[in-house]
Design a protein around this nucleic acid. Sequence first.
RNA 1: GGGUCGUUAGCUCAGCUGGUAGAGCAGUUGGCUUUUAACCAAUUGGUCGCGCGUUCGAAUCGCGCACGACCCA
Length: 500
Amino acid sequence: MSEQTQQDENKIIAERRAKLNALREQGNAYPNTFRRDALAADLHKDFDALTKEELAEQAPVRVKVAGRMMMRRIMGKASFATLQDMTGRIQIYVQRDDLPEGFYNQQFKKWDLGDIVGVEGYLFKTNTGELSIHVEKIELITKAIRPLPDKFHGLQDQEVRYRQRYLDLIVNQESRETFILRSKIVQHVREFLIRKGFLEVETPMMQVIPGGASAKPFVTHHNALDMELYLRIAPELYLKRLLVGGFEKVFEINRNFRNEGLSTRHNPEFTMVEFYEAYTDYKTLMDYTEELLKELAELAVGDTKVPYQGQVFDFGKPFDRLTMKESILKYNPEVKPEELETLEAARALADRLGVHWEESYGLGKVMTEIFEETVEERLMDPTFITEYPAEVSPLARRNDENPFVTDRFELFIGGRELANGFSELNDAEDQAERFKAQVAAKDAGDDEAMHYDADYITALEHGMPPAAGEGIGIDRLVMLFTDAPSIRDVLLFPHMRRAD
RNA sequence: GGGUCGUUAGCUCAGCUGGUAGAGCAGUUGGCUUUUAACCAAUUGGUCGCGCGUUCGAAUCGCGCACGACCCA
């Protein structure tokens, strides 16, 4: 701790530090010798149902519990306190005369809220029926020098909740629940894919050529090799190399990094699951996705009606499936199909709808812009949009009947893109052409266009089985199922500006 | 990038048209052996985000900056 910080310390911290110094003089101030044998939630699960009398009549249930002291009610020669461990809270009852002479007044009563204590005792129920531990031994395990936020109102300041997430987790139960549910969702996604026979793999986070998506990368430097490396914007091209290598069903759950702005829906690092399966197509993936999301709704909400920020999304019915063109016509009833058939007509339509386009855009890109501006945010219940133009899908397989579009879909819920999948382009020569078009776009000023990845082309030239692949944004998924308005609410440590 | 709102004690918040700051919790001291946001009594604690300006006087008004929240692009 710096001198400056010490100077800034207020009286509360100074008092607690004095207590800590007294503890140091008495011996080990930070012992790691207490071993618990019970967790709060397990005790409630096993004993809440018993009456006070039933619990008193049976043989005493002796337990050792550790946790942070969140509340305390001192009533002269006896006290109640509330301990919190990772599973929840349990009340303890401490009597002066159960403890060694002087301990209650000289030690216990001088401890503070926020201190971590270990207790040993037996279970009982209070007159109001609350399961509690009648303490026979109690020890201070860790002294907290700084005070907790308000015991009743919790921590309200959003900035502090994000910057000092540990405080948020200590005092705000909803926050703990959000991150526990996030863990369960990730676990379920993993188990779903393993159940389907997929192999979990890890591919490079640092890449020589950032590929697999259209986004600006973070750049770093490898000293020993004296070369630039990019944090990955997607794992896609590596996972497809594994298809070439004969791993025919693979997935990865990990972070991607995109050097873009922050918003309630964007964090520079975010978590995706990507999975690839050989000898199948995008329609299979849509079926998987629908199956997975229905399971997740059941897991997270326990219902097919998922509430989100005052709206309700229906996961019970079969998910809608519309082509991009169909969706534009559906949500813009005055638009005629012919207006989406030539570049000139589409440009005129975009002008009419107030959608921006540039000279370099082809029909596919203009159409996609119209879709994004007029349809996307209105897709509330889960909806698959298919037939994305090849122009905006440089890694996707062209449709056999209509090469203008690809065998691709995106899933939208609540107006937000949740997933993106397609049958994979495994024609090395077509892929090389598409990369060249991307490079041309990059040269023309599109700094999100892809690089030419010759090593990937070489891999495709060895033969990649026909396959389909998909990415699902885990953070947005968790936002949806935890009713979180901001991506920061589902990231333990969201990116923030420097506080100083 | 633009707009709106916010920043006051460790925490949660008041503070009116400008007159040098309040409550509850936490802390401290005392009381209380089934409380539960325990209670009762007393009490400590503040560079009012930072800077500049207006004014006899600024937490309050104006401008700028920082950080955050929300909306828009």
